[in-house]
Nucleic acid binder design. Structure first.
Lengths: 173, 173
DNA sequence: TTTACTGCAAAATTTTTGCAGGGGT
DNA sequence: ACCCCTGCAAAAATTTTGCAGTAAA
């Protein structure tokens, strides 16, 4: 058992899982899988498309959507909304990590991940309470990170000092 | 204090909150608020529009979107995705209820609500761990309800008996 | 060689925006 | 009377579908 190649492992795991489902590993899919597994950030379809195009300019946006749908249905990626902080797109991440909650700062947009035991406890309680068979779970928490709490307090103070500012027509400035 | 009119209470609470924000209570908004507070189900924008149109045929779809956005930003409603079980729409519910998780059956689409203490525990842990100020939280759990687990097992058995069924062209049947 | 997969074009779905007129407070 | 809010039309953003050709196994 090798424990020295943590970044190559997941990719193989994913690829084997796909083969088992009788899915072809095309060049396009390899590019997209690499990006989702290794980008380190939460990508939406459009951003994924832009990044993929850098590696293969012919790769089509439709292929991105089709691949994401397939990965989602195979249970290989999770689809997130991140509280719609950045808009109504969906974001994607591998399911190879342990289950975690996403903590989204509504001011700076930063996303933290939380792996505490309440998550497992919640699972267990829901399973026993409803006799439910859980396939996937998702927790998203929106609020203000330690850093932005201070900034926000300052912003509120500033706003209070010049209260009757007429609504700014930003488009026309 | 009256404890006999549970359905009228929340509406007033919502309306007062809106007044505080300097928001006008138009006929359209009253219709939409009533539907969201009292429908008992999770409505998406389109369904909300259809229901609202029954009460006022002139009410426009755009008004529904604008009202939902306003209510969301005022913190009066929560926006849910219900695991995208039914598609990519968003669903809405009042924030007058206690925080709860949504348990969605991926087969029959039924949505249950769970109010256990792990949710509060999760909140507290996230707040202390990250020094985070939580404004809103959302937990969605997808899987199979007790009823559908049995049905699904039967479906799997059935599928195993006639394995090579060619992909059905549903549109042409 | 088979047929799952891709790209392209076109459509469908969901949501936003500009503007003129109407209604709440 | 003020100006926030609505309806309408049009656009933008996001996702899906049909079909002919391409490439993985």
């Amino acid at each position: 058992m090798s424990s020295a190649a943590p970044s190559a492992e997941p990719r193989n795991k994913t690829r084997e899982s796909l083969k088992h489902h009788g899915v072809r590993l095309t060049r396009q899919r390899q590019i997209l899988l690499d990006l989702i597994d290794n980008s380190g950030e939460h990508l939406d379809a459009e951003r994924l498309f832009q990044l993929a195009k850098e590696k293969d300019p012919k790769l089509n946006r439709v292929t991105v959507y089709r691949t994401l749908k397939m990965l989602k249905e195979s249970g290989l990626v999770d689809e997130l909304d991140l509280m719609h902080q950045a808009g109504d797109q969906h974001f994607y991440e591998t399911r190879l990590k342990q289950e975690h909650a996403h903590i989204i700062c509504l001011r700076c947009g930063r996303v933290e991940e939380f792996f505490g035991e309440p998550l497992q406890k919640l699972r267990r309680q829901v399973e026993s309470h409803f006799g439910f068979q859980i396939m996937l779970a998702r927790t998203e928490i929106g609020g203000y990170c330690a850093h932005c709490q201070a900034l926000r307090a300052q912003e509120m103070r500033d706003a209070a000092e010049q209260p009757a500012l007429p609504p700014v027509r930003r488009k026309q400035l």
